[in-house]
Amino acid sequence: MFYSLGRYILLLRLSFRKPEKYSVYWAEIMREMVSQGIGSLGIVAIISVFIGAVATIQTAFQLVSDFIPKTVVGGITRDSTILEFSPTITALVLAGRIGSSIASQIGTMRVTEQIDALEIMGVNAPGYLISPKVITGVTMIPLLVIVSVALGLGGGYLACAASKDVSTADYVAGLSDGFNPVIVTVCAVKAIVFGFIITSICAYQGFYTKGGALEVGQSATKGVVFSCIMILFADLVISELLL
């Protein structure tokens, strides 16, 4: 365990050494932003709308008392979406989409000796392959979480309009009622940490792949599983520290 942790830290140190040519790294970052960001926008949008709608419907179902104002539904949906649903569920979904892609891509380059060829040519392979992915992860995943929050709250509005259990006016009023800005800070911290976890762990699993095609698939699976576990653990730690 400590040996693996040491290799993980060493790999990150090698990844963020001074680049040989900034323009090459910048081009790679732009390519990763398109792949991770725009490529993930569709699945994030679909999941967010439905999660917001379901959260609103279930909250309205549980608030059956006439003594509880209907505006509470909007407030509960807002807080749960910003604090938990959008950052955590989005990160778990992206761990499957982005993480498996990173691990399999780097793992394939390892088993086909492309990484060895880069090192022979004097290229810092960890820096060229991993740092653009990590930098993109900690920038694009928070942006995707912002989109997820907006669409989740929009999904709740659509659910209110369709079900009529809670009026859209009450829902919108509840979104601004008793708002605490700290939940936005917690959401942002979670998104950045989750982005780093997904990209760095999956890149580590791919970089140290040994064998052939079967081992590449195993590395991708390990990367996704370990990322999901660490996301849930980090979610608990961040919530305990900041709330």
Rank of each mutant, 00 (worst) to 15 (best):
R78S: 13
I43V: 14
V49T: 07
F2S: 14
A91R: 04
S40A: 13
E113M: 07
N124C: 10
I192K: 03
A203G: 08
S176V: 02
T56K: 13
A55F: 10
I231V: 15
V49P: 00
S167W: 12
I231T: 11
K190P: 06
L10K: 15
T168D: 06
I115P: 04
V166N: 02
A220G: 07
V134E: 13
I197W: 11
L118I: 05
I82A: 08
F226P: 09
I135D: 07
T71K: 13
A117D: 03
S148Q: 14
A55W: 12
S86N: 07
L41V: 08
A53V: 03
D116M: 07
G137F: 01
Y8L: 06
Y204A: 09
A173F: 13
S101Q: 13
E119C: 02
M1L: 08
T209Q: 10
F179G: 00
W26K: 10
P181W: 00
Y25K: 14
V216C: 05
V64R: 15
V54S: 14
V166C: 05
E28T: 04
V145L: 10
L143S: 11
Y25S: 10
L158W: 14
L214G: 06
V182I: 13
S80F: 08
K133S: 12
L41K: 03
V224N: 01
S80V: 13
Q114T: 08
L151T: 00
